[in-house]
Write a protein that binds this DNA or RNA. Sequence first.
DNA 1: ATTGTATATTGCAATATTACGATGATATAT
DNA 2: ATATATCATCGTAATATTGCAATATACAAT
Lengths: 107, 107
Amino acid sequence: MGATKTYIFSTKQNDLAKIAKVLAHPARVAILEYISKQDACICTDLVDIIGLSQPTISQHLNEIKKIGLLKGTFEGKNLCFCIDPERWKELQETFHLFFSNINRNCC
Amino acid sequence: MGATKTYIFSTKQNDLAKIAKVLAHPARVAILEYISKQDACICTDLVDIIGLSQPTISQHLNEIKKIGLLKGTFEGKNLCFCIDPERWKELQETFHLFFSNINRNCC
DNA sequence: ATTGTATATTGCAATATTACGATGATATAT
DNA sequence: ATATATCATCGTAATATTGCAATATACAAT
């Protein structure tokens, strides 16, 4: 009990849910918005700007990274987080399809 | 500790997160897909089709209802759950905007 | 080598979510 | 009236998420 029964659902359904889960926290939405606003690759002022502790930000970034949305240099100092445009487009398309394939003629 | 610090974020960010949270479970994705496939308003065969218990389905439906996505008769027998097309369009637009407003020129 | 800066990891407490059995409520059919 | 079918609610157990302090790691500059 308690755990999501993923095996009951299709891969597509689980995938959409997984992506949505990443967007399901305002901090991650804010992080994505902020990163996207930067013209150049800006490293983590996120702690100051968002107002959560460094470990917490790091965790959120990791969730975003897990679904392949972050690209850049991930070693040492001067990390460089930026959005992977290919993956971004994929997600955009995933949501677009989901919202389009709904038949709204009802009641 | 432990609770999301919603007060740190903007209304828009919180709203998007809230909507995404509803889509962040495969059962709710499946429910929405199923309801949308029905031409007429079909009541809850969801328990059989999805494979979760009736109380669990009921809870998930409630989450979907909370963000205004369900419309219909909610009393007595022969309930009638269907998607509110207006609200659906709003959510679609919300995601569309989010995915469009991202500057992907980076790295 | 040492110090400073940037990020990751660990461990843990608080809270939220998921799932279901039991029970309750309401409507329809017999 | 009684039975049945449909859904909601309550209580509770299992699990997941959120957040941070403490600590570790990695590199750059001195």
